[in-house]
């Protein structure tokens, strides 16, 4: 049920609590002071994070990142570089070992409630129809949950408008398994946006889709973003996706992750598929690729040599 963890817990519940802050060298207190009153919607300063048994996995080390209000940031990097950890930190689902994260001027100290999230897996509830799935946030978000009876019509209109915007009409009474993967992912996007969050976190949302559906959904997402201007962080390993969608692309190093480069993408919006074949687009993609290559996992033989010597 819990795998082996239950038995570990049985043997030493609470005894193996990790001892934090050992791996990080950043000075937090001064940074918090600097951060107050700055315009960035999200500012991440010197964040460190380790997890696993006795902090064996050092995910992030001294990561700095800023996102403007209404900005679209993409984070790219080699696989396993801690991109998903970054998402958990920004959403407040995890606390960093060191460093500081502020969203909208307030330090993040618990799960934020202004967030929409979407993942590679659409994670829809199979017992609810599409409309029910999209309406789920209204039942949970504090601001809405106590008015849900009165607001039912308004909420449903919002959900329908979003479903229409992503090109899904006439499916609201269907169930998730009746929809294709791409359609499910559209629904997942609607669920992430229906409560009008100020911040949208996307963790490789199009990773499991075929190339055509993916490009279609890029446009869907871009149009929604242009219309609503929610601040977005997109984590992806698809460089073209990052350049196509984002204002700024941040490149992460391999684990322990930090930001090694940031690129502006000065391509006019709305971008359409043809943009991806123009030289300036391709140049940025190439540049990103060049910067990520040295971050890919080191040559396994080299690692062996180092451990032996």
């Amino acid at each position: 049920m819990f795998g082996n963890n239950g038995w570990e817990l049985l043997l030493g519940f609470g005894l193996l609590r990790r001892n934090s802050n050992t791996a990080c060298t950043q000075d937090v207190v001064t940074k918090v002071a600097i951060m107050r009153g700055e315009p960035s919607f999200i500012s991440i300063e010197g964040v460190c994070l380790s997890y696993g048994r006795q902090d064996s996995i050092h995910a992030l080390d001294g990561l700095d990142l800023r996102v403007e209000r209404g900005g679209f940031a993409a984070v790219v990097g080699p696989s396993g570089c801690g991109k998903s950890s970054l998402m958990k930190l920004v959403s407040g689902l995890r606390a960093p070992d060191a460093g500081c994260i502020a969203v909208d001027g307030n330090e993040v100290d618990g799960p934020l409630k202004i967030i929409g999230m979407a993942f590679q897996n659409p994670t829809l509830l199979p017992w609810r129809n599409i409309l029910g799935n999209v309406l789920l946030p209204f039942e949970v978000v504090d601001e809405h949950r106590y008015t849900i009876r009165m607001q039912r019509g308004v909420n449903e209109d919002k959900a329908r408008a979003l479903l229409h915007a992503v090109g899904l009409d006439d499916v609201e009474r269907r169930f998730p398994w009746q929809l294709s993967g791409g359609m499910q992912q559209r629904v997942s996007l609607c669920r992430a946006l229906v409560h009008e969050p100020a911040l949208l976190l996307l963790d490789e949302p199009f990773g499991a889709l075929d190339a055509f559906t993916r490009e279609e959904l890029w446009d869907v997402l871009q149009d929604l973003w242009i219309a609503r201007k929610f601040t977005t962080i997109l984590v992806t390993h698809d460089l073209r996706e990052a350049v196509y969608l984002a204002d700024k692309v941040h490149v992460m190093s391999r684990r322990p992750g930090r930001i090694v480069a940031t690129h502006d993408v000065p391509i006019a919006r709305p971008r359409r598929t043809e943009v991806a074949f123009e030289t300036d687009f391709i140049e940025i993609v190439h540049l990103l690729r060049e910067q990520i290559r040295p971050q890919l996992s080191p040559d396994p033989l080299a690692v062996v040599a180092r451990t032996v010597s």
């Binding site: 689902l93 799960p111 929409g116 999230m117 993942f119 994670t123 946030p137 949970v140 978000v141």
Partner: peptide, 18 residues
């Protein structure tokens, strides 16, 4: 078993909504 095997991502989605 049903409760313990809830997808962690779904849990994240809901917890990030508060």
């Amino acid at each position: 078993t049903g409760l313990a095997t809830v997808e962690p991502e779904l849990e994240d989605v809901l917890r990030s909504l508060g």
